[in-house]
Design a protein around this nucleic acid. Structure first.
Lengths: 112, 112
DNA sequence: TAACGTTATGTATTTGTGTATATATCGGTA
DNA sequence: TACCGATATATACACAAATACATAACGTTA
């Protein structure tokens, strides 16, 4: 059975900036409060997750994630209100596209 | 400057079936009348292009591309009416998503 | 039947991405 | 000041995907 799929993401000067991967990671950080736990939970290497957070923070006027090292629990990670706003906007956009695709079944009808 | 990008494709039983790559290849075959020329023109290896055409033909009730070998000009490739219909439907779908994204600038406003 | 240009097909090589590993750093607590 | 758990960072390695390459097969024409 054939199905239409889609993916949307944001590029900054032609480079990938925010998409499904970062979105999932940010959600996981929000839940876990730790970058290493978040990465582990979604089977992403810590390094990749860390690089990804750097990219988000460095290419934005406002940071997405605050990383803290040392301290009582060794450190931790938390997302900012800016990240929350962006996540919501991204999910809303995905939802809109998803609704559009449900209406556009013409392609599927053609493909047998 | 940040920009929203998207990609849509068709999967068949969870496997990639038709997307931007195949679409471009089919268009190129239509123009060139030859699989090797089409592949060369879009910097795709002949093998990859050939595999791709097999996938399209074998996983459809109707073929997309007719390949002929031997003969006066050594052979050639031509696309079927079915492929033409599918291409048109795919482009229409892309267009619809594109229009939707133009209206949905909220995400961009959030990302500074 | 030799030549030609294209399709057909397998194999070797390269390339790039992700992963594993190791080690340093930090700051609060006891 | 020793310890702890998390972040920070570089390097080496593994694997998969793409590509390059080589060669066979085909059918019409002359």
């Amino acid at each position: 059975m054939k199905k239409i799929k889609f993916k949307c993401w944001v590029e900054d000067e032609g480079e990938k900036f925010y998409g499904p991967g970062p979105h999932q990671l940010i959600k996981s950080i929000q839940k876990e409060g730790s970058l290493s736990k978040a990465a582990g939970q979604m089977n992403m290497s810590y390094k990749k997750a860390w690089d990804l957070v750097q990219r988000l923070n460095k290419n934005s006027e406002e940071p997405w994630v605050i990383l803290k090292k040392g301290g009582q629990h060794g450190g931790g990670a938390e997302i900012t209100p800016h990240a929350i706003k962006a996540m919501q906007a991204y999910e809303k956009l995905q939802q809109k596209i998803s609704e559009l695709l449900e209406q556009q079944e013409e392609l599927i009808k053609v493909l047998k």
